[in-house]
Amino acid sequence: MSDASYITTAQGRRIAYEKTDGQGPVVIFCSGLKSDMEGTKAVHLEAWAKARGQAYIRFDYSGHGHSSGEFAEGCIGDWHEDTLAVVDQLTEGPIVVVGSSMGGWQALLLARAIPDRIVGMVTIAAAPDFTEDGYWASFTEAQKAELQAQGFVRMPSDYDDDYIISKRLIEEGRGRLVLRTPLRMDFPVRFLQGTEDTAVPTETAVRLLDHAEGDDIRLTLVKGADHRFSDPDCLTLIEKSVEKVLARAKA
């Protein structure tokens, strides 16, 4: 990768980022769990932003990519603080948030934390509350006992090495759940979801659509697309969705 720039959060974490200057609103890409700013979607959107002169930021949460820290020591709240630091230190005025998988949860947390700054949102296979509804709900009694005894369990992944799921990730995540209390989004929102996603089921996308409150919220299902959502047609759909949100925001 090119030489990244860095900011330091209030908690002392060093966060790597790449920023493209251009017209606002600034588009901010939030990556998924154990993904980073060198992922296909993050880099593709940077090229799209440069081509249209759009301000754009991609970054690595702590414990991811080129940022400081260890993944196994992080949690949803840490990564939310990292995301807020990126917004606070690198942007002014309105922003559009694009969140992939766990980054979709981070986007929804931003909608609660700084609703007045957000003028549009696109999520891709958003995974809100996955620590509780995905991991904890699927753990066997043996895994729950293992989590309590040693502080973590290993979970296989179809897309990466095994995940080390810590007790802190599960317990801290319970304070960040967004599907249990009202979720108001008074800006254009586009949820994108593949029907062959084995990491985030279609039911999660429908539940999110039903739960979210707002006048301009739509869900698009792509038959046959998996969790990566990175083939040429999916990447084009992401572009067009961000463009639609930007156009509606400016209108």
Rank of each mutant, 00 (worst) to 15 (best):
L147Q: 13
C30P: 01
V87N: 00
D231C: 09
T195V: 11
T204R: 13
G173I: 02
A145K: 15
M1C: 05
V97K: 02
A16R: 03
F139Y: 14
S138I: 05
E70W: 04
I118Q: 08
G32W: 04
D226F: 08
G39C: 07
L221F: 14
A199E: 13
L169P: 00
R248P: 01
G120C: 01
I170P: 00
G99R: 04
A72R: 12
D233Y: 10
D60S: 10
K167V: 04
M155H: 09
K34S: 10
S157V: 00
E146V: 05
S2M: 11
E243A: 14
T140D: 10
S101T: 08
W105T: 04
D226N: 15
A42P: 06
A251C: 04
A51G: 05
K19W: 01
K144C: 10
R154F: 00
W136P: 04
D133N: 10
Y56N: 00
F187L: 06
V98R: 02
E146D: 14
A205Y: 11
E141C: 06
L169W: 07
K250H: 11
A125E: 11
D116H: 09
R112K: 15
V200E: 08
K167Y: 08
V86K: 01
L90Y: 00
G32V: 00
D233A: 15
Y17K: 01
G120F: 03
D161S: 10
F152P: 01
R52K: 14
L84M: 10
K34C: 01
S35K: 00
V96P: 02
T9G: 09
L183K: 12
F152K: 03
A137S: 15
V242P: 01
A247Y: 03
E146R: 13
L90G: 02
E92V: 01
S138R: 14
Y159D: 04
A251H: 11
D36I: 05
G24N: 03
A149Y: 14
K144S: 07
R184Q: 15
T40K: 12
Q11R: 14
I165S: 09
E146K: 12
K240C: 07
P232E: 12
H64I: 01
T204P: 02
S67M: 07
E243V: 08
S62H: 06
G12H: 06
A247T: 09
P156Q: 13
R180N: 06
Q11K: 12
A145L: 13
S68L: 05
W79E: 04
H211A: 15
R117V: 02
G99A: 10
E92S: 12
M155A: 12
I95H: 10
I114S: 03
R52S: 12
C234F: 00
E141M: 10
G77V: 01
T40C: 06
T195S: 15
A251G: 05
I170S: 03
T195C: 08
V43S: 08
G104P: 12
D36P: 02
W79D: 02
A85S: 15
G99V: 06
D78Y: 11
D216I: 02
D82C: 05
V122P: 03
D215S: 11
A251R: 14
D161R: 05
I114L: 14
L192K: 11
R168V: 10
A225S: 15
L221I: 12
